[in-house]
């Protein structure tokens, strides 16, 4: 499988070629219906998003607000699992060219086996992972080699409370981009982004080696534009999940949602 590593990581390539207003959309795999995963991926690609983050549902999503909690619960009831997700993603690179990341909690990944998970993710064409409860030290000590071998970016979160020293350490260990959590909150909050202006400016001025993407509390064009002023782009999750929750026409609704942000 060493040919895998010769493919350029699509995330890295993206950030080299496009520096501004990158839109990253999150959705929960297997929601609203189990087999919607690929339909949503295709619709997102068609609508012109720059990258896609697929949420792997977990029974106890600590960092998530009600919208993603509920989508996760439904997805699990629908029968979603990591195994199932990898089946759905097999062959996806025949249709999708934008970078894809998998986001999820550590326990299901641990049960799958971190090494096997990284191999399989790379095999189906995933470019990076976001595992918010994977401790930074543990990643460096035990897992970073699996990521490197499989050419996977590891995206770490930073928050307004992250110290300057830790920000530097995270920047050293991260690859792909730094995920800046906009305010102290779980996902899908409605805190005022303007209050984070000082923090955004600090990040912008920090000369990080990784590009910056801002997420959490971003739910409309105004917020998206505001975040993009300080970063390479922004990440929208809960607002998108809400928009497709009761959809009868995913392709249309995805198209409309993305068009509303551009």
């Amino acid at each position: 499988m060493h040919t895998q590593t010769k493919i350029a990581n699509r995330l890295t390539t993206l950030f080299e070629t496009k520096k501004k207003n990158l839109l990253n959309i999150y959705f929960t795999a297997g929601f609203p219906a189990l087999e919607d995963t690929v339909t949503i991926l295709k619709a997102l690609e068609k609508s012109g998003v720059d990258m896609i983050e697929i949420g792997m549902p977990f029974s106890d999503p600590l960092a998530d607000g009600p919208t993603i909690q509920q989508s996760s619960e439904v997805a699990l009831e629908n029968g979603m699992s990591i195994k199932k997700l990898f089946e759905q993603l097999a062959g996806i690179r025949e249709h999708i060219s934008v970078p894809i990341m998998l986001m999820g909690y550590l326990n299901p990944v641990m049960q799958y086996g971190v090494a096997a998970f990284c191999r399989k993710a790379a095999e189906v064409g995933v470019d990076g992972l976001i595992l918010p409860d994977l401790p930074f030290d543990e990643f460096n000590e035990f897992y970073s080699s699996y990521f490197e071998e499989n050419n996977l970016s590891n995206v770490f979160l930073v928050t307004p409370e992250t110290s300057d020293k830790r920000l530097k350490q995270i920047d050293e260990s991260a690859s792909g981009f730094i995920y800046a959590v906009s305010t102290n909150s779980t996902t899908g909050g409605a805190k005022d982004l303007k209050q984070a202006e000082g923090y955004f400016q600090k990040l912008k001025d920090a000369n990080l080696k990784n590009p910056l993407m801002i997420g959490f509390n971003i739910n409309n064009k105004e917020n998206f534009d505001f975040a993009c002023h300080y970063a390479s782009g922004a990440i929208i999750g809960s607002a998108f999940v809400k928009a497709i929750k009761d959809s009868n026409n995913l392709e249309n609704d995805v198209q409309n949602f993305v068009a509303g942000l551009r």
């Binding site: 600590l62 409860d133 401790p135 543990e138 979160l157 409370e161 779980t186």
Partner: peptide
């Protein structure tokens, strides 16, 4: 044991 927490709880 350990501390498997998202960055938001770290400080």
């Amino acid at each position: 044991g350990g501390a498997y927490i998202p960055e938001m709880l770290y400080p």
